[in-house]
Simulated assay, not measured.
Amino acid sequence: MRTVRTLTAALLAGATALGVAGCTSEADTPPATSSAGSAATPGPSGSSDKTEQSAPTEAGTSFRTATPFRPGQQATAGASTGDYLYWVLPVDAEQRATVKATVTLPESATRHGAETWQIDVYDGLRRRQACAYGTQTRAAAKEASTVELSCTLRTVRATAEQWANDPLPGSYYVRLTVVSLPDEDKGLPVRAAVQAEVADAGGAHAVDGALSTPLVPATVTGTLREPEDGWSGGWWSDRWIWTAAGGVLAALAGLFGYSLTRGSGRPSRVPPQA
């Protein structure tokens, strides 16, 4: 039993060390969610950090001219009803992105009926990604002043099978347009605002392996910048801590079962007869 107690104490000490290391690593690791308030490298023109990080006030009209923005920023643009508006943002592995859009419509007196708006999200291969939930398409009555849309994507995977359409790390294009309206209302001025929120899904969605290069194609406006904390390495996740803790608990359970079996197998002592 002395040996059992010694092994048990050693394993418990190892589990405590793993827990402390995991907490320290998590505390030292910067959050995966990007924000507009983090530091940025000044451009060659000597512009300030505030200028570099300001949210865009225009949108592209195609995939090639999509305007980059970061999660946490609110990108705005003025346009004409019927235009296709494009933005692009980076999303990393084990992250789930929610894209929201608000369209400020022309005054009802200038419109001739209801109109329907839609938001679509495409990955770096320009594959349209389905929304896990959200209101992707919404109709606005003639009297409505705004219309709000949202799309929450599936969790981005570090890698995928060749036949799968899983979302992968890299660029994600946001396209906003009207899909139904009276012909007389085409060309009326509108104001659009889009923003994205990114949440970490954790090790439950981790997979072994990663893309050698994120899907970040070059555009006319330049290559999309990587997330502020860099692209993930693809091998580390919090599931390693749970795996180690599970191994320690399994070892302790084995030792406890061994001690019970060994104790029950000893012959009982028969008291000497008088």
Rank of each mutant, 00 (worst) to 15 (best):
P217K: 12
A101S: 14
A9P: 03
T98K: 15
A77S: 15
A192W: 12
V194C: 09
A140W: 08
P217F: 13
L211D: 04
R96K: 14
A75L: 02
P30I: 07
V156N: 04
T67K: 14
S171T: 03
T137W: 11
G222I: 05
G234D: 08
P90M: 03
R70S: 06
E26D: 13
G46W: 09
A9E: 09
R126L: 11
A164L: 06
A132N: 12
S259K: 10
A17T: 14
D123A: 04
Q136S: 12
R70H: 07
A39H: 04
T104A: 13
Y122K: 10
T51S: 06
V207G: 07
A77T: 08
P31E: 02
A75E: 03
A196K: 10
E184V: 02
S150N: 15
V216M: 05
C131V: 02
A140I: 01
P271V: 14
R2L: 13
E161G: 15
L11T: 10
A109V: 14
L153R: 05
L176H: 08
W87I: 10
G78I: 03
T146G: 03
G134W: 11
A139K: 15
Q118Y: 09
T41V: 12
A17C: 10
T221V: 05
V270E: 12
A15W: 06
V147H: 10
L85P: 00
P90S: 02
S150Y: 08
R266Q: 15
Q136C: 02
L18N: 13
R127K: 11
A204F: 08
L168C: 01
